[in-house]
């Protein structure tokens, strides 16, 4: 097994699919980073992903247009993000519990709509591979990094953009302040609610994109519960990455590479039971959360609703 693994084409293949599989984690976790930096934990990412996956898939299937698929997912993400913000910010719900509700809602609704709209499994023609001119010809590097579809490139482009917005803009400063000390932000004339609505809604849109990246770019099918916990892992990745976009990316790559590796192990029919291999990413999640429990740079107001005059 080891000598098979050390074959260069296998290694390149695993690295390339690691990059590819990081895509849904990146969308969901970068979006969630914004929410958490402003003090709102959205455990419902998984549910929004499923709804995004379904709506993107449905739009592409019925219209044949990939652009409409992305738009449909973004719109559904926007609505579910607004709903999440309403529940967590305006109604000040307990965020750990409301997130479970949002997850179950998305899980159930996407399943119902799927059964109503489709008769069994169908596929769509998803985003095609784009070979970046020149770069994709570079040996090894080209194969790993520059032969992916558009949504993969966009996901990785989001990372430096997110870093820049958080650290170099007035909006980013507001987001960080609201997550660390909403009372202080409020006293400086910042609307805590508005900032949180913005970040949570953006997080919803990115979660939906994460789902769509599965259903119209990576797998090109929709299945019930097709995200299989990736949304929850994305929430964990935000902790793992210490609420920093590049840290989140490092975590996403680690997870997706482990995932790619276990998929390869399963296709090889090597005598490790498949169940153990598919457990690996989830075990890694638990490990990440244990490590994250010792972190001190967590936004101080995370999960705490804001109330004036406390």
């Amino acid at each position: 097994m080891i000598d098979q693994l050390l074959d260069s084409s296998v290694l390149i293949g695993i690295a390339a699919s690691g990059i590819r599989l990081a895509t849904p984690y990146l969308y969901a976790a970068i979006g969630e980073t914004f929410g958490q930096r402003s003090g709102v934990l959205n455990l419902g990412v998984e549910g929004i992903m499923l709804m995004g996956a379904f709506s993107g898939f449905w739009a592409v299937y019925t219209s044949g247009s990939l652009a409409l698929g992305v738009l449909a997912a973004l719109l559904v993400g926007l609505l579910m993000g607004l709903g999440t913000a309403f529940i967590n910010v305006t109604l000040k719900a307990e965020q750990g519990i409301s997130g479970i509700g949002i997850f179950l809602f998305g899980l159930g609704l996407s399943e119902l709509l799927f059964q109503q709209s489709f008769d069994g499994v169908v596929t769509v023609r998803g985003f095609p591979k784009i070979r970046v001119p020149l770069l994709s010809e570079v040996p090894v590097i080209g194969e790993i990094f520059f032969q992916h579809n558009l949504l993969v490139y966009v996901a990785f482009a989001l990372v430096p953009i997110a870093w820049f917005v958080l650290n170099r803009t007035t909006l980013g400063l507001k987001i960080r302040a609201v997550g660390q000390n909403p009372q202080a932000a409020d006293a400086m004339g910042i609307s805590v609610a508005r900032v949180r609505y913005l970040t949570v809604t953006f997080g919803g849109m990115m979660a939906a994109m994460a789902g769509a990246s599965l259903s119209i770019a990576l797998l090109n099918v929709f299945q019930q519960n097709m995200t299989a916990g990736q949304g929850f892992i994305a929430v964990a990745l935000v902790y793992f990455g210490s609420w920093r976009p590049f840290g989140v990316m490092a975590g996403a790559l680690l997870f997706s590479t482990v995932n790619a590796l276990q998929l390869w192990v399963r296709t090889k029919g090597i005598d490790i039971p498949a169940e153990y291999a598919s457990m690996a990413p989830y075990l890694l999640t638990i490990l990440a959360l244990v490590l994250a429990a010792q972190r001190v740079d967590q936004p101080a107001a995370l999960t705490k609703p804001f109330e004036r005059g406390e």
Binding site: L173, N181, A184, A300
Partner: peptide
């Protein structure tokens, strides 16, 4: 305020700039 309205993780300049154009 009696309990300072500062964000501890930010610098002095960031705290001053907070919420201003």
């Amino acid at each position: 305020h009696q309990h300072f309205m500062l964000v501890p993780s930010l610098t002095v300049a960031e705290n001053v700039a907070l919420g201003l154009r």
